[in-house]
Design a protein around this nucleic acid. Structure first.
Length: 137
DNA sequence: GCCAACGTTGGC
DNA sequence: GCCAACGTTGGC
C-alpha cells in the first residue's frame, strides 16, 4: 500500500499544533462531517498528514503521520463517527499562509481552497510535496 | 423524499 | 461584523 497524503484543519484555540508536538501523539476526535469522516476511515498507519490552523493564523503549520487507523470516536454521542491517532513529524520552518496557497496554480484545486469547511481531505502527492517545499521543509 | 429555513464554519 | 458555502432540520 502506497502512502496516502492528507490535510487536516484545526482551530488552534481548540487544539493547536504545538499541543500535538508537546503531547507526542493525540487522538484526532470530534469530526462530525460525513465527508470528513469518510476520509478518516480511508487513512492508514504511516500516511502523511499536513496540519492547518484556521482562524487568526490561516496557515499550514506542521507535518504529522497516522499512527492508528480509524476507530470509534470516544467523544461522539452516537455510533458511526471515528477518530484516528496522529503523531507529529516536524514543524514547518515557514508556515504556509492561505494567501500563498491560493496564489499557487498547483494548489488551487485542493479542498482547502475549493471547500473551506471540509476539515479532513486528501492531497495528491505533488500537492503535498509543494506545500512542504513552500514551508521550507 | 423534497425543499425551504435555519445554523455553523471560516475567510474577509 | 458580514457574507458565502454548505450541512442539517423539519414540514409537507
Amino acid at each position: 500500500m502506497t502512502t496516502q497524503y492528507w490535510f487536516v484543519k484545526q482551530e488552534p484555540s481548540d487544539y493547536a499544533w504545538p499541543d500535538l508536538v508537546r503531547d507526542g501523539r493525540t487522538a484526532w476526535t470530534g469530526v462530525r462531517n460525513p465527508a470528513a469522516r469518510n476520509h478518516l476511515r480511508a487513512m492508514a498507519v504511516g500516511d502523511a498528514v499536513l496540519v492547518y490552523h484556521t482562524g487568526e493564523e490561516k496557515a499550514v503549520v506542521g507535518r504529522a503521520r497516522v499512527v492508528r487507523a480509524a476507530y470509534p470516536d470516544p467523544t461522539a454521542d452516537g455510533a458511526g463517527w471515528v477518530a484516528v491517532d496522529l503523531a507529529p513529524v516536524g514543524s514547518l520552518p515557514r508556515p504556509v499562509p492561505l494567501a500563498t496557497i491560493k496564489a499557487e496554480a498547483l494548489l488551487r484545486s485542493i479542498a482547502l481552497v475549493r471547500q473551506p469547511r471540509l476539515s479532513v481531505a486528501p492531497l495528491r502527492g505533488p500537492e503535498f510535496t509543494r506545500l512542504l517545499r513552500l514551508g521550507g521543509a
